[in-house]
Design a binder for these strands. Structure first.
Lengths: 157, 157
DNA sequence: ACCAATGTAACTAGAATGGTAGCATTGAGA
DNA sequence: TCTCAATGCTACCATTCTAGTTACATTGGT
């Protein structure tokens, strides 16, 4: 498999928040985000909680206007920051059970792979750093134009 | 989690085969490779079978000298090729259950992410393409120098 | 005080990974 | 032709991870 869909959900949530914040600057409940992403509110809250720890979103716990909103302008949040906030595990896994250390190759393969895996993950993150949530909003709106016939009850679906 | 350890095992196996082939050009059994990687021969055979389909290794099915060897020089096998041979799933997962298509963002987010994910995976593969199995052999040997005291019963240990 | 919303823990179903066992097949060598 | 070491393949299992669900305590405007 691959990078978990948690990352996709995080990006979707942030993109949705950025889009909704264009009209009014308020907090939005996890139910509404979950509705757009088509998942459970608890799952959304778990992920947004991680984004809040990374200071990418602000949270309002109680009261009538409780919910979430971006902590910064969408132009100032890169996909790389979101990745760091949501994904903790390294991109490449090493051996489940360590290699045989009595073997010449087995002794050196892990540090050798560690270097290469590190460079590769860095290249991936460099690419993610070149896109922002604002870019994602624009791109999503451009791609969403086609199927307009299904739009019915507003942007939050 | 991340890219499965299958990829690490594939690289380890190829590196080991490249190292062993420096002395004699013969086929090596999956048992010996499994011993260095510290896993089961069946798992090794599953992975080497994929590498054989991609024409990266040759296989000898029966007879006394049955086993595996590199199909090309180690200098001519890039880590990108190994990745393509072993990993079929995309690097990033999209929504488990598709997003809400009645939402403006939900309608456009998947194609938008598809573009970005494609570019990111391409950047990762570009980086992997800059390293060969021969590089891995050299790097492994350099890193393995330190713990020489454990070397006892030969390189396949 | 009310109550809408979050935070969090526990439990579950489903999928994926890697290990194990069994058996048919291959093919060089005696 | 027979032997036998090795692969190919299938089925099954334990473990782990993901995401969904439920439940309940907590927060904090009104």
């Amino acid at each position: 498999m691959a990078v978990v869909s948690r990352y996709t959900v995080a990006l979707h949530a942030l993109t949705w928040l950025a889009y909704m914040s264009r009209d009014k600057d308020e907090f939005f409940a996890s139910d509404r985000i979950a509705n757009s992403v088509n998942t459970s509110p608890v799952f959304i809250r778990r992920i947004l909680g991680q984004l809040a720890k990374a200071r990418l979103v602000s949270v309002q716990h109680g009261g009538t206007g409780a919910g979430w909103k971006l902590a910064r302008a969408a132009e100032a949040i890169t996909l790389h920051e979101v990745y760091e906030a949501v994904v903790q595990t390294p991109l490449f896994e090493l051996h489940h059970s360590g290699p045989n250390l009595r073997c010449q190759i087995g002794r050196g393969i892990q540090p050798a792979l560690g270097e290469i895996y590190g460079e590769t993950e860095a290249a991936m993150k460099r690419q993610l750093g070149s896109t922002t949530i604002a870019d994602l909003v624009d791109s999503s709106l451009a791609h969403g134009e086609d199927g307009k016939e299904q739009a019915s009850d507003g942007p939050q679906g």
